[in-house]
Design a protein around this nucleic acid. Structure first.
Length: 270
DNA sequence: CGGACTCCCTGCCGGC
DNA sequence: TGCCGGCAGGGAGTCC
């Protein structure tokens, strides 16, 4: 399940091989992703140079002179650089053939998406409603506190809402709430300004640590044989239900919130 | 508008 | 050992 750190790590990893490079060919083996890949896509981008490579939330944006390719990894997607003679596997749905390598999109569960737009990408309907980037200044205590007033949704759902702030998936929502000592079920409208200030700090901490760690496994993306890893080794609550809390040693609890697995310490999180 | 819920897909895990 | 049911999960879409 790629979260923002994996997406950003992917973007940084592929950047040197992609930016200002010409796309020689696009091979689509399976167009049925979350939405079907537009028939016109190869026609639009074959032979074109990739002039920009940016990220908005968990979307990676490939900028061309004539438009933008929006790519989302869904929950099982990945982008890897592989040698040109590499045979595709079962779930290798799309190849972007560059001059020296292939940028290969793999996605077993096909929750990912690849879209083409010729308008300003930020005005695209998948991007135009998105909240601020969690690592940027606009994601401030003042902003989050104001947005949260009178909200009756649990704090965990609130910070996972992309209209509020982008890029906080289930894993890091669990982790940030643990670090801040906030119970995931607490209603967003009931969280104090002081706690929001601390929560923002911890969201940035877990995300930036994971991005930093991702940097050390960058060769996985360019080498093509490793997996990017989910930074599991340093997770304090996610995937640890029933195991002792790292602070108080009491067993961690697991509940479902918004259909998502939610793990917390009933002693340390109030 | 907010909040609750559904659905897309398939690898994996537990139960028998 | 093999089969099968159920689960996980990002996030758009729908409904009230």
């Amino acid at each position: 399940m790629p979260e923002l750190p994996e997406v950003e790590t992917t973007r940084r990893g592929i950047q040197p091989y992609v930016l200002q490079k010409k796309l020689e060919r696009v091979i689509i083996r399976q167009p049925m992703l979350r939405w079907p890949i537009a028939d016109e896509l190869p026609l639009k981008i074959t032979g074109q140079k990739i002039t920009q490579l940016t990220r908005r939330g968990k979307y990676i944006l490939f900028g061309f002179r004539n438009g933008t390719l929006l790519l989302h990894l869904g929950m099982s997607g990945s982008l890897r650089l592989v040698a040109k003679n590499t045979q595709p596997g079962k779930h290798d749905h799309v190849d972007f053939v560059l001059s020296s390598k292939i940028l290969r999109f793999t996605d077993p569960r096909r929750f990912g998406s690849i879209l083409w737009t010729e308008q300003d990408p930020m005005q695209h309907k998948l991007l135009n409603h998105l909240g601020p980037e969690p690592l940027e200044e606009t994601f401030s205590t003042e902003y989050l506190y104001k947005k949260s007033r009178h909200r009756k949704t649990p704090i965990k759902n609130f910070i996972m809402d992309s209209k509020i702030v982008v890029g906080i998936g289930n894993i890091y929502a669990n982790e940030a709430l643990f670090l801040t000592g906030i119970r995931p079920t607490l209603l967003a409208g009931k969280v104090s300004k002081t706690k929001y200030q601390l929560l923002i700090k911890n969201i940035r901490l877990v995300l930036s640590q994971a991005i930093q760690q991702g940097g050390t496994t960058l060769q996985d993306f360019v080498g093509g044989d490793g997996n990017p890893g989910y930074f599991k080794q340093q997770l304090k609550v996610y995937g640890r239900a029933g195991e002792p809390c790292v602070n108080c040693k009491k067993p961690l609890k697991e509940i479902r919130l918004g259909q998502r697995s939610t793990v917390y310490c009933s002693h340390c999180q109030r």
